[in-house]
Design a binder for these strands. Structure first.
Lengths: 255, 255
DNA sequence: CTGTATTGCATACAGTGTACGCGATACAGA
DNA sequence: TCTGTATCGCGTACACTGTATGCAATACAG
């Protein structure tokens, strides 16, 4: 029944057929990926090179291709490996759990900003990423929402988390050339003020003058994040209430 | 008063000091960027090479560096140039306007998926990108929300748009090696079903069995998008109502 | 013991971004 | 009008990227 999996997926799930003949592999996929992650943490994504990774591991560059089909594949596997475990539910209700879930999502993206770049390349396929998805769906199970709705909600929340992380990262980055140029030496709001024509950008100009883009610390501040997440969850809560009204006799009773 | 701007910003706003001496420039920045965008549309982002761009323009590779400080800078300018104008407000209320705004945001990301990769590199700095921000803030002006809240809402909406676009793109891409491998030959849900251990991913497994990831068409379907955006706007609407209650005598009356 | 699959790796190559420097150009000031 | 100089396009060069290929060493299957 088990259809032949794409190589990346097999690699992600450790489903490679073990080799029986020939010399024993001197490395393991996990070792390679772990070193790559360490490298990305230290030097950023562009510091991860097949040769830099090889020398980190003390092997020749081409040896890596015995463990990974291509660099792109390595990146996909890295992305999953670098994703932490989702927070445990511990009996929490969907709303507090998803709040923490989204916050944790943002947090690990801020800790490993290179994941932001990698996230765009492929849909969630690895065990870690899918575990996040599973936990969110599990938390929503008692709400009576459909599977499709649950998936959509999850998408929305991760979207919020990564957008927030990307923005925060862009504003506070001390490395990375363009961001550094902008976020480091000159304040963001200051640049906007210098460049905007108030007649053409009236609303934005108002915000700038009101110092809404003020200090960089605002962006790391948690109040902003909490505000946005409440917004989202309010919408979800309203939906749940609406659906409960529409179906006065649900097939599965809500506890 | 006008402080010295970072080079990228100057380039984005056409604020370069025009040269008076020496041979006339044979190209203009807009021409270069336009060609680069055309190239990205045709061959994707990795088809944009300093040499490919040069030969597209009929000049030598190194000539480009008279117009652009580095390739990264080129990409930033491209991202802004490739962003279309935001939809006009035309007297619409904030809710219908922001709905269309977000949808239009997703749409142009789907038309130029390479913008998804580029969006992460720098905060909005160019005229086009900032115009989107300005229009959204303008639409929210009559709601009595603070500037900070408006910005946060905008962030949330663009986050939703880009996440949705990224996912849709990943599922339906016919190019790009990993996505192709996954989205093209084998269905996403099928892969999940083959790989998931139901005991470890109970909720997700339920969703897969219910065919919630079913046909790829679902992902382009607009119903999903509309669902999510309603969620967000419901939350915002609730916030507006709440704030209106807190201040029974608002300075500006809501029409 | 032999055959073979599989290992690590050296070599090679096409392609990348860009530093540097040159002759040609066209204006500023004499 | 002449000269100096800032700026142009661009040829050359270089460090570095990902990876195709092939080969000797290895260790199990028969």
């Amino acid at each position: 029944m088990e259809r032949r999996l794409p190589p990346v997926v097999a690699r992600l799930w450790g489903r490679e057929i073990p080799s029986r003949r020939g010399p024993r592999p001197g490395l393991e996929l996990d070792t390679v990926v772990g070193a790559a992650v360490r490298l990305a943490d230290r030097d950023g994504l562009e510091g991860v090179t097949m040769s830099s990774l090889a020398s980190e591991l003390g092997v020749a560059t081409m040896s890596l291709y015995r463990y990974v089909g291509s660099k792109e594949e390595l990146l996909v596997v890295m992305a999953d490996a670098a994703t932490p475990e989702p927070p445990p539910i511990n009996g929490r209700a969907w709303r507090p759990y998803l709040t923490g879930w989204t916050r944790a999502n943002r947090d690990f993206l801020l800790q490993r900003p290179w994941l932001l770049t990698l996230g765009q390349h492929a849909p969630p396929l690895g065990p870690r990423t899918l575990r996040w998805l599973d936990r969110a769906l599990a938390a929503l199970e008692s709400t009576g929402l459909s599977h499709a709705e649950g998936i959509n909600i999850t998408t929305t929340l991760t979207g919020y988390a990564s957008r927030q992380a990307a923005l925060t990262h862009a504003m506070t980055a001390t490395t990375g050339t363009v961001s550094e140029e902008v976020g480091g030496l000159v304040e963001y709001g200051e640049i906007l003020g210098a460049v905007l024509d108030p007649a053409e950008f009236p609303a934005l100009d108002d915000a700038v003058r009101a110092n809404a883009f003020g200090a960089a610390e605002v962006w790391i501040d948690d109040a902003d994040f909490t505000f946005g997440i409440s917004l989202l969850l309010d919408g979800i809560e309203a939906l749940i209430a609406r659906k409960a009204d529409d179906r006065p006799t649900p097939i599965v009773a809500n506890p």
